[in-house]
Amino acid sequence: MSEANKQPSAEPMILMQGVHKWYGQFHVLKDINLSVQAGERIVLCGPSGSGKSTAIRCLNRLEEHQQGRIVVDGTELTQDLKHIEAVRREVGMVFQHFNLFPHLTVLQNCTLAPMWVRKMPKRQAEEIAMHFLERVRIPEQAGKYPGQLSGGQQQRVAIARALCMKPKIMLFDEPTSALDPEMVKEVLDTMVSLAEDGMTMLCVTHEMGFARTVANRVIFLDKGEIVEQADPDTFFTNPQNERTQLFLSQILH
């Protein structure tokens, strides 16, 4: 799809239409319909196995959907590798287990993709990397290896690494679930500041405090279906659905 026929204001950043996915015989995603505008901040929650991770992993085709359409930033995700790579260039992802490259320094982790994918000169890539490492407040760790950092620091590096590609959309797949409690805040703070800058974000998370303050919309998934979506105020104070209520009562004590 060419730049010319893109209409940034009218067309949603992300569009999922009737998306289905199966793992073998198991129906994980059932008729997912979702449209996300630029600058929106969406939180996906739901019990484990509800398909929320699978849903956002379909958005950069780490998982393949078998039915329906997914259009990201005007590019439809199909078998075509060119489209997939175009989408991945514009979509940053942060994983539960960081997935930093252990054989590269923090700085090299951040410059790898800009240099090899964006074909950026090394100096420029390093400047950008340092900019984002300052942004996540760990520029002093640039020369270290991931194994030398704490979990919270590693996750912040992972966020910086994704930001170095200057993505239009950021996906967070349970970014704080693998962290020790005292490290959750430093990562959430980074995400909040990112939201304040107007980044389009989709987060799978159980941090309901984060959802309340940052999200424009909270989506509740169960058994592969979107059961309820609402703005955080309505969602937390006045959930419409009994599944949602049950889930909230379990998670908010």
Partner: peptide, 18 residues
């Protein structure tokens, strides 16, 4: 209060199983 009625599990597309 609403009760969500879940859609039934559908069989996967023929081309992806069997």
């Amino acid at each position: 209060m609403q009760t969500h009625s879940f859609k039934p599990d559908l069989p996967p597309p023929v081309l992806s199983v069997g």
